[in-house]
Amino acid sequence: MNSDEKQVSESAGRRANKRAITALAVFVAIILVLYVWQPDSFHLWIKALHVVAVISWMAALFYLPRLFIYHSDAEPGSAQSETFKMMEQRLLKVIMNPAMMISWVLGLYLAWDVYGFQGGWLHAKIALVVLLTGVHVLFSRAVRTFSADGPRKSPRYWRIMNEAPTLLMIAIVILVIVKPF
C-alpha cells in the first residue's frame, strides 16, 4: 500500500474517528475535574474552553470551503479528488463537528449560568449561532455530495460561501463584546 492509498484507507478513517471520540471523552473529564477542583472559577474555565472550541469551529468553517474550491476543479475519481474527500471528511468529523458541539454545550451553559438567558444581545447572538450552524450543515452536506461524486457547485459559489462564516462571526463578536441592546 503506497502512502496515497494509506491516506484514504478506511482504517485510517476509523482511527481518526476513535481519536475524535477519545478527545471528546478527555474534554468531558477535564470539565468534571475543573468543576471539582476549581468550583469558584468554574464559569471562567468554561468561558475559556468555549472560546477555544469556537476558535476551532471557526477555523474549520473557514478552511472547508477552501477545500471545496480546489475539490471542484479536481476530476471526479482522480487521486487528487480522493485526497480532498478524505481531508474534508476528517476535518468535518474530527474537528468541525466536535468543536461545534462543544461550542453549543458550553455556550448554552454560559447563557444560562452567567446571563440567565437575559438580554436582547444574547438572543440575537444565539440566532446568529443558529445561522452559523446552518452554514455548518450546508458544508456537511457538501462533504457528502463530494464524497459521492455528486453534482458540484462551482469554485465561484464556494468562494462566496466562504464569506458566510466570516460575516456571521463578525456580527457575533460585536454582539458579545459591545452588547448593543
Rank of each mutant, 00 (worst) to 15 (best):
A60C: 06
A23R: 08
A48W: 14
P165H: 13
P165Y: 11
Q118Y: 08
A79V: 14
Y115A: 08
L91A: 10
G134Q: 05
R152W: 06
E88A: 08
L32W: 11
W45D: 10
V105M: 00
G107C: 00
A29H: 12
P155E: 09
G116T: 03
F117P: 08
V54L: 07
M58W: 04
S147L: 02
I160T: 11
Q118L: 10
Y109F: 14
M169I: 12
A59K: 13
A148R: 04
D73H: 07
I174M: 14
L132K: 00
E5G: 09
L110M: 12
R159E: 07
L67Y: 06
H71Y: 01
P76W: 00
I69F: 03
W37R: 15
E163W: 05
D40I: 07
G134Y: 00
L138C: 05
Y70C: 03
W37S: 13
S147H: 01
Q7M: 04
G150H: 01
P180R: 04
I69K: 06
R144W: 07
I174E: 05
R90G: 04
Y109Q: 06
F84R: 02
R141G: 15
L61K: 14
I170P: 11
W121L: 02
W104M: 13
R152K: 07
P65E: 07
A79T: 15
L64I: 10
V33N: 09
A148D: 01
L108D: 03
F68T: 11
I31D: 09
T83F: 03
R144A: 02
